[in-house]
Design a protein around this nucleic acid. Structure first.
Lengths: 239, 239
DNA sequence: TTTGACAACCTGTATATACAAGTATGGATT
DNA sequence: AATCCATACTTGTATATACAGGTTGTCAAA
């Protein structure tokens, strides 16, 4: 789990801050103290602290030290590739996944464009609804390159696809681009979700790349207006 | 401008990649070559490359090198504290700012809560509409702690407030939290924007902190549904 | 009491070095 | 031709060191 020293330190402190055992505003030990405590060098400690700072856990002030930020108010997700399953588990809500479709289909023109396919071959398509506290609120439409994902079991689709891809198929997922916009509801949305009379729906398009930069997955996550929330943490520079 | 060596390298390459003079997939010089070229050490080069990677400009592969990512497709903003003025200037659109309000007001209960005020004193309030290609599309409502921003000229409100705060007042803005959600339109929205018949509006709440972690500004940016877009870049880990 | 100089501590930047581990290449062996 | 291996090059992690510059508290001088 903690292969690297700096990851070890990062995990220690991110866990402590998330659990609340370190409270907001509290001062962390100095870099030199941490280096001694972990039996490592200051630079290694600094790498861990920099990550904590980047991810909104702490705040560093030159000449003073590192201080815990208010992560309770931050809620989730503090940006990053956080899957639906991860978020809902954290919130402790009753969640159910309904798989409407899970098979290999020829790619439409639109999907070929989204996945940057030259020759529109087949893609693996998964359509799922996410039911939270009894209401079908999110419609997830996933498309995978069959080169990397030749097929997917119903079990994997019902649970976390990411877990399956990373742990079973060992696919090296690297980075993703998210696009959030609001669009008019489609007949499919009305059919598969509990939409009431809402005329619009929040669409989160997710383009997922592997470490060799190939785009291998395109996901459309369609959220009912009233249940959508996105949280982002950003730093002005390298403070 | 380029106080630090690693900032210098970062600025050089981020500019080249944004301008397109380095094309997608192109390989950057190796860390050792860059260190020699800039007359610096490898660690300093690595700091710059890490920043380029974090901000979605490049992608590093162990044993191979650093490669330019497709930033054209990324569009803007690639997350971060990018102001409206910065974005619109990049897009080269005709933009006009209409200042509806720019004065000191007593804080309401809601504003006091957003700014975490103990005793609800006065705050500086700015209400502006953003007109893009002739349509009033965005309503920006800014609230500042009078401790830091005692007053604001109409000129500063019309142009970029951030520019004024950072360059004139020298306020050390550090980090911010964004919350995106969709809400029902208010009578004020209908009055001040060109909303057609839309019943909902995208609300981006922005909580801006200084380097001493004090929350000094709260901004509500209300976007017409059809014109809203948010782009985010995220890495799975420290690849 | 106030001011100023100083020391002690803190983080930020930069350098040099070492080794681990992934990638590509070319040559020898099979 | 195909396989294996050594080699050189790449990035990743870790250490030690040095100095710059911000922060805080102390102590002496005004």
């Amino acid at each position: 789990m903690n292969k690297n020293i700096y990851m070890h330190i990062y995990n220690d402190y991110s866990a402590q801050i998330q659990s609340g055992s370190l409270s907001t505003g509290q001062k962390l030990p100095s870099e030199n103290e941490l280096a001694e405590a972990y039996g490592t060098s200051r630079e290694t400690v600094r790498k861990a602290l920099h990550m904590l700072s980047e991810n909104g856990y702490i705040h560093k002030i030159k000449g003073k030290g590192s201080f815990v930020l208010d992560t309770q108010r931050m809620s989730f997700p503090v940006s990053g590739l956080v899957t639906f399953k991860e978020v809902s588990e954290r919130l402790g809500r009753s969640v159910r996944t309904i798989v409407y479709e899970n098979d290999c289909v020829p790619s439409t023109a639109e999907i070929a464009r989204c996945l940057q396919l030259k020759d529109p071959g087949p893609v693996w398509k998964v359509v799922r609804a996410r039911e939270i506290e009894g209401e079908k609120i999110i419609l997830d439409k996933d498309y995978f390159l069959t080169t990397y994902v030749p097929s997917l079991s119903l079990e994997a689709a019902t649970n976390s696809i990411y877990e399956y891809l990373e742990q079973k198929l060992n696919l090296p997922i690297s980075y993703a681009k998210k696009e959030i916009s609001v669009e008019e509801v489609t007949p499919e949305d009305k059919l598969l979700l509990d939409l009431y009379d809402y005329q619009h729906i929040v669409v989160v398009r997710n383009y997922v790349h592997l470490v060799d930069t190939t785009l291998f997955q395109y996901t459309e996550s369609r959220h009912r207006l009233d249940k959508f929330q996105f949280v982002d943490f950003a730093r002005r520079a390298q403070n």
